[in-house]
Amino acid sequence: MVSCPFAVSCWNKSFPGSQSIHTQVLEVWLEKMFGKYSDNKYADIVTLCWALWRARNDVVWEKKYSRVNRVIASAKQYLLRWKCAPVTCSSVLFRFVVEEDGAITWVRPTRNSIKVTVDATLFAERREYGLGIVARDADGLLVEAKIKCYSGTVTVEYVEALGIKEALSWIKNKGWQEVKLESDCLAVVQAIRCTVEMQSSFGQVVADCRRELRDSNSISLLFIKRSANVVTHCFARASHRYPDRTFDWSDIPIEFQDCIQMESI
């Protein structure tokens, strides 16, 4: 778990500070890791232990070998799903506007349709913000992905709304039919669904989204949990490294391939 070269590569990539811990005893190593990182990282450490153990079992029992990025992605995906598991439809504190809202895992679209997920992120220290938009088919395969990066200081709600607007324009230009467009920003999804006019830059983007949706009878906008939007979040976070790029499966960076495959299982 701590001396295997493959495991060490996983730890070094996920927790660069682990390189300074020198011991072969797992209990001692974990104690030092917990002392080195804050308690909000404990679950990440334990989950990566679990993912490494599962990868080890795959090698021993099924002769299946994995890659570092895939093991790390599986740990993050499992943890996100676990965190969302306590949320049930009986909760009276949280009500969705549409019955299909609130998916906690990514679900493949029906045959002859496309699912587009969108996410946004802020790079406050760089005074930039980025978008990730990912389209996949009924087999969970990547149709195309789009990344954009902008300069400026804006609110997260504005960027999330801008992402939905960009996705709607992209879908229209592609001529795709029967599309489900998903965002993990409930506030923006609800703002687009309501009819309140807002006199602001955010309100203008929301109005543009409403107009695009009215003009199309084949696009439905849904809210999903962050745990169902892992892949697109990865694209958004990488937008400053791949600004204004469009990918298909033939040229997608390997760092995204494992996330897509894991989320499509």
Score class of each variant (00 low, 15 high):
Gln177Gly: 09
Thr153Cys: 07
Trp170Gly: 07
Tyr129Met: 04
Gln19Asn: 00
Ile147Cys: 13
Glu178Phe: 10
Asp208Arg: 05
Val134Cys: 06
Cys10Ser: 03
Asp58Ile: 00
Glu27Asn: 09
Cys259Phe: 10
Asp208Glu: 14
Phe34Tyr: 14
Ile104Gln: 12
Val92Gln: 14
Glu178Trp: 12
Tyr150Asn: 14
Thr47Cys: 08
Ser3His: 10
Glu157Ala: 11
Ser74Cys: 11
Asn12Lys: 02
Thr23Arg: 04
Val189Asp: 12
Val60Ala: 10
Asp244Arg: 04
Glu212Ala: 03
Glu160Cys: 04
Gly130Phe: 07
Ile254Phe: 13
Pro253Cys: 03
Ala103Asp: 12
Lys41Thr: 02
Ser151Thr: 07
Ser9Trp: 00
Ile21Tyr: 03
Cys209Val: 03
Phe6Cys: 05
Thr47Ala: 08
Phe202Tyr: 15
Ile72Lys: 05
Glu62Trp: 05
Pro253Asp: 06
Arg210Cys: 05
Tyr42Trp: 14
His22Met: 06
Phe247Cys: 10
Gln204Cys: 06
Met1Pro: 00
Ser9Val: 04
Arg241Leu: 14
Asp215Thr: 01
Ser3Arg: 09
Gln261Tyr: 11
Phe15Asp: 00
Ile21His: 02
Thr246Met: 12
Val68His: 06
Ser218Thr: 15
Cys259Arg: 00
Arg214Asn: 12
Ser91Val: 00
Asp137Gln: 05
Ile104Asp: 02
Phe223Gln: 03
Ala145Tyr: 01
Pro109Met: 09
Val179Trp: 13
Lys225Ala: 07
Ala145Asn: 02
Phe123Gly: 04
Leu162Pro: 01
Ala7Lys: 04
Ser14His: 02
Glu160Ser: 08
Leu168Arg: 00
Glu31Asn: 12
Glu166Lys: 00
Pro5Ile: 14
Asn57Pro: 03
Val205Arg: 03
Glu212Cys: 02
Ile21Gly: 01
Ala207Asn: 12
Arg136Glu: 08
Phe34Glu: 14
Ser18Gly: 04
Thr195Phe: 11
Cys89Trp: 05
Gly132Ala: 08
Leu162Ala: 08
Ser91Cys: 12
Thr105Phe: 12
Val188Phe: 09
Ile171His: 04
Gly102Asn: 09
Cys185Asp: 03
Asp184Asn: 12
Asn40Asp: 15
Ala75Trp: 10
Val28Ser: 13
Phe34Gln: 10
Val68Glu: 15
Asp258Ser: 07
Arg211Cys: 09
Ser200Phe: 14
Ala145Met: 01
Lys165Pro: 00
Lys115Ala: 04
Asp215Leu: 04
Ala51Glu: 05
Trp61Asp: 12
Ala167Asp: 02
Thr105Tyr: 14
Ala55Gln: 07
Trp29Asp: 05
Cys234Met: 07
Ala103Pro: 00
Arg81Ile: 08
Thr246Ala: 14
Leu80Asp: 08
Phe6Gln: 03
Ala103Cys: 12
Lys174Asp: 08
Asp184Val: 01
Ala187Ile: 10
Ser66Ile: 01
Trp106Asp: 04
Ile219Met: 07
Lys83Thr: 10
Ser18His: 07
Asn217Lys: 05
Arg211Phe: 15
Glu31Thr: 11
Cys185Asn: 11
Glu197Met: 13
Phe34Asn: 09
Glu125Tyr: 13
Glu27Ala: 13
